[in-house]
């Protein structure tokens, strides 16, 4: 796979097509991981996906990144993080409050007292919320990226 990608050249649009197909594959593997109740497939799949995108990007013959596109990415990433970390901290601090409002697990009770049992449900909720936050992060980044791309003339056309 590595040789195939590094020895071949591709156009910019082919690269974006490859990236799109990879994204679809990642979603399918995520679904499979949930079905199998095993996080390993999606973890490996994400690492492989990053590797393939990296190799594919190196084989693109046209210029797809320059100082203007880097500026757009930087600004979008910075504003996404500015919003994301505030929300993420608020949510995470709640989970910390729940976790520390219990006996510290140096000597765990066995069997656990009934009062400690519902914790799984609380953390299950935080799991869903963190997944939602990850989705929010993607939407925020795409939104900011589109905003700055428009500001810096990405969608402009010219008579030439």
């Amino acid at each position: 796979m590595s040789n195939l990608l590094t020895n071949t050249t591709m156009k910019r649009n082919t690269f974006f097509l490859v990236a799109g197909i990879l994204a679809v594959i990642e979603v399918i593997v995520l679904w499979l991981s949930i079905e199998m109740n095993n996080p390993l497939p999606i973890q490996i799949s994400i690492l492989l996906g990053i590797l393939v995108v990296y190799l594919a990007r190196r084989s693109v013959t046209e210029v797809i990144q320059d100082e203007r596109t880097t500026l757009i990415s930087q600004k979008a990433a910075m504003h996404t993080l500015e919003i994301f970390w505030v929300i993420f901290t608020l949510v995470s601090i709640s989970s910390v409050i729940y976790a520390f409002n219990r006996p510290f697990p140096i000597r765990p009770h066995f069997p656990p007292p009934p009062a400690e049992l519902p914790i799984g449900g609380v953390f299950g909720f935080f799991g869903f919320f963190q997944l939602a936050l990850l989705c929010l992060m993607i939407f925020l980044y795409v939104g900011f990226r589109m905003y700055y791309a428009r500001k810096y003339g990405e969608f402009d056309t010219d008579e030439e």
Binding site: V63, I64, D66, T69, L71, Y152, G153, E154, D156, D158
Partner: peptide, 19 residues
């Protein structure tokens, strides 16, 4: 753009004063 190793959109954005 290809001579300067930048994208065509960058040349266009500079010409239009957007960047």
């Amino acid at each position: 753009a290809s001579k300067l190793k930048v994208t065509r959109q960058t040349i266009l954005a500079i010409e239009k004063g957007k960047y």
